[in-house]
């Protein structure tokens, strides 16, 4: 059956693109010690938020907006790294699976979209981010459904995809609502705090003094 092979292709493609993106970003970014430890700390923070509340409150997680804001303040590469590492690390504790690479790509895209907002609308505040977070709640579900659909459902038609998406609609709505609430409540302060550290991190060495 040709249909079954699609599940394999999609999963393998996920693994390779996540790995290549991480590798390529690392080579391009040329991270220094401060960036490395900041990314690790933010990723741990997000993963803790995803895991601790992910179990207690299901999908109401104070996490996705922080990844978005990280991208918004620190730029696309840091946003991507923090985003991609969040599911990777929290899944060490709540279960790795073939879904991990796809989740990494999705979360990485969330971080990069934050950077895109700053690029497109330099004067945007946390209200724009809040709206985007709400949209990402649904978009994330829709992208993850592609993986689930391609591996477990036959035939691969638009109708069967729609049914899988509809089956997860309530979860997606919960996620989107959680993003909206948390970003509205905590977004403004988070941007302030991260901007403060962005300034603090920016060290320039003077040559030949």
């Amino acid at each position: 059956m040709t249909g079954t092979t699609w599940g394999l292709y999609i999963t393998i493609a996920g693994i390779f693109s996540a790995a290549l993106l991480m590798l390529g970003m690392e080579k391009k970014a040329g991270l220094n010690a401060r960036q490395v430890s900041l990314i690790a700390m933010l990723a741990a923070f997000c993963a803790a938020g995803r895991m601790v509340t992910g179990v207690a409150l299901l999908f109401l997680q104070p996490t996705m907006f922080l990844v978005e804001i990280t991208g918004f303040v620190f730029g696309a590469r840091v946003g991507f790294f923090v985003g991609a590492m969040t599911p990777l690390i929290s899944n060490f504790f709540i279960g790795q699976g073939p879904w991990t690479p796809w989740q990494m790509i999705c979360w990485g895209l969330v971080g990069m979209s934050g950077a895109a907002v700053r690029y497109l609308f330099p004067r945007a505040g946390y209200k724009t981010i809040t709206v985007l977070c709400f949209v990402w709640g649904y978009l994330y579900g829709a992208i993850m459904d592609i993986w689930q659909w391609s591996v477990f459902i036959r035939p691969l038609t638009f109708q069967s995809y729609f049914l899988i998406w509809a089956a997860g609609f309530s979860f997606d709505s919960l996620r989107a609502a959680g993003n909206l609430i948390f970003c509205a409540a905590l977004g403004g302060q988070s941007i302030k705090i991260l901007r403060y550290f962005h300034k603090k991190m920016d060290v320039r060495y003077l040559e030949n003094i």
Binding site: A40, A44, I89
Partner: peptide
Amino acid sequence: RAAGKSALMVALATRMFPAMVRDL
């Protein structure tokens, strides 16, 4: 060997994770 910094970041974050729950 291939991606030293990514591996370091993941290791650091995994190590900070329990410390973060303790801090909380």
